[in-house]
Design a protein around this nucleic acid. Structure first.
Lengths: 328, 328
DNA sequence: TTGAAAGCGCTAACAG
DNA sequence: CTGTTAGCGCTTTCAA
């Protein structure tokens, strides 16, 4: 395509080895020839062919990322922080979307490996020992975010269990007598990795166990809107809806608005994740801050450490935080 | 790293050329040997090294993308559609973020070229003949989305001018007597490419010119919140705020909520872009649907056509659409 | 301090 | 139908 190191060698009347020494400031070269080479390289607008370099070094300086979907706020923020951190460390990112297709997920990981990315960040839809085994046998390092897969594959996320039980307790402290855990993804338990939601459920149940005076209900299917409609009719106990994701909470708020049910006077509501959409909705939703940017940058750092052969934390939890809005 | 075509050749007792013919089903090979080779390749789990292939073919089957930011809804949707379309066509996507830094933008384009991507999709922050010249001289094709740069560089976007004047007319038809065009990016005219906003302004002004009975005001700075506060005090004419971006509209709605000014009873408001956040805000914002997914997929199609040496539309406009909400 | 040669894994051209 | 050879552009020995 353009000008190669061979051209420079020829023009400067030196060998390609010497050009390499000058260009990548390696030792054992005379200052004078070095300068001469650099000068002509500059003048000719020489740019090294990174593909050729990769072939010999075995490094591409790029990271592969596999997630569901970018339109999802959670992933948009995650990818943003991954890209920025990677760039800072001199890496490029190859973003691929599996659209919640387990088969596609594997295909994408394979093609990233074929393209010789130096490592992969995965938010898995697959689960089970099979994938665990498969991932551990990859020829390049991989870290998992959000949904845990199995020990031996570095994981970065939050303490979902604690976050959910913290939320439960907070809601109780606000005087609610019935708490409904709204978690539609539970319906997909068999076909998808919904580790984070399962952990949230566990945290919710553990807290409920501790506080038996509080009635608790779990909604674990995608027809949650209708279930909620029925629930709000029997207006006996002071009820809060704790949603395993802000979007569910937003949908429910929309429903309540149409039913003329006011929040928090008639029912309470709490979300999870603190997606940026919340900035513009009223009443402000109480939720749990999911530190997705930190997760993204830690994932990159961990992955690069792994690439460089360093030891890493196999299971890294980032602090979450409760955000008090006006919806409780 | 793994098993190479050389290994297969050795094991099958044939030459590498023959292996190549089998693997990439090229002609001039006996069916029998082909099957034998494919079988052993399969058994050994052979995967071609795409880097090595790229070095010789000169193609990487990947597209570079340069945009501001992924957290921005507009870009999140754009990138989503770019990735999906590219994948369909067998291409990978390298996403890079320039964070509105013109210098970084050039650096990123250069590194994408160094990495030998086959083409680039750019939403530029740079402007002017200098960049135009620079981009036209790239060794690979490039298409521009959103902000036009200069003729000769294929562009994909919407008819901003018409969209804005359509909006003006719609607002007038709702009985408003004063229309305020809120467009803070105009303040950055000198340092950034804000083509789309400038065109919107032109469309607004052209419509205002046609309908002289309507008072029109332009707010072109980032202190727009205070200007609007002042404006709403003088409650003489029926006023609507037409924002050159939904996020400005959302900010203003938030302001009005805090000032107890009701929409649309006391003031009207209109946005631009139809970002997905709108789904959860009330009252539903009237806005202009910016077909960003179509723009993304068309950008990929155009770029691939260019890569394949086909002729393309140099200036492609996608249809916008007015979305009627409850805010007017 | 520099040059020469080998090789990364693949494809492509030309012989056989 | 198959083998041989060359070469993509770079880095990396080893020798001078």
């Amino acid at each position: 395509m353009g000008i190669t190191s061979k051209d420079i060698a020829r023009i400067c009347g030196v060998s390609r080895g010497t050009v390499d020494r000058a260009l990548n400031n390696k030792p054992r070269i005379k200052q004078e020839t070095k300068e001469r080479i650099l000068k002509t390289a500059q003048e000719l607008g020489y740019r090294p062919d990174l593909i050729a370099r990769s072939l010999v070094t075995g490094k591409t300086m790029s990271l592969g990322v596999v997630v569901f979907d970018i339109r999802n706020r959670y992933f948009a923020q995650l990818l943003n922080s991954i890209e920025i951190t990677a760039k800072k460390r001199g890496y490029f990112v190859n973003i691929t979307l599996q659209e919640k297709d387990p088969y596609m997920e594997i295909k994408l990981i394979d093609s990233l490996v074929d393209r010789r990315v130096d490592g992969i960040i995965l938010c898995p839809v697959n689960k089970g020992d099979g994938v665990g085994e498969y991932l551990r046998n990859l020829p390049i390092p991989l870290v998992v975010v959000g949904n845990f897969i199995s020990p031996g594959i570095p994981f970065i996320g939050i303490d979902e269990f604690k976050a959910a039980s913290d939320a439960f307790k907070l809601i109780v402290s606000k005087g609610y007598q019935r708490i409904v855990f709204v978690c539609p993804p539970l319906a997909d338990k068999d076909k998808e990795n919904i580790y984070s939601h399962e952990k949230r459920l566990e945290g919710f149940m553990a807290a409920a166990e501790q506080m038996k005076a509080i009635e608790h209900i779990v909604i674990d299917n995608w027809d949650y809107m209708n279930e909620i409609k029925k629930l709000v009719k029997k207006n006996d106990l002071k009820t809060a809806f704790f949603c395993s994701g802000d979007t569910f909470a937003l949908e429910i708020m929309k429903l309540f608005r149409s039913l003329k049910i006011t929040i928090p006077d008639q029912v309470g509501i709490m979300g999870f994740d603190y997606i940026d959409t919340l900035e513009y909705v009223t009443p402000a939703l109480s939720t749990i801050y999911n530190p997705v940017s930190e997760i993204g940058s830690k994932a990159v750092e961990t992955l690069i450490d792994l690439i460089e052969g360093k030891e890493v934390e196999p299971y890294l939890l980032i602090e979450h935080k409760i955000i008090m809005g006006e919806s409780l």
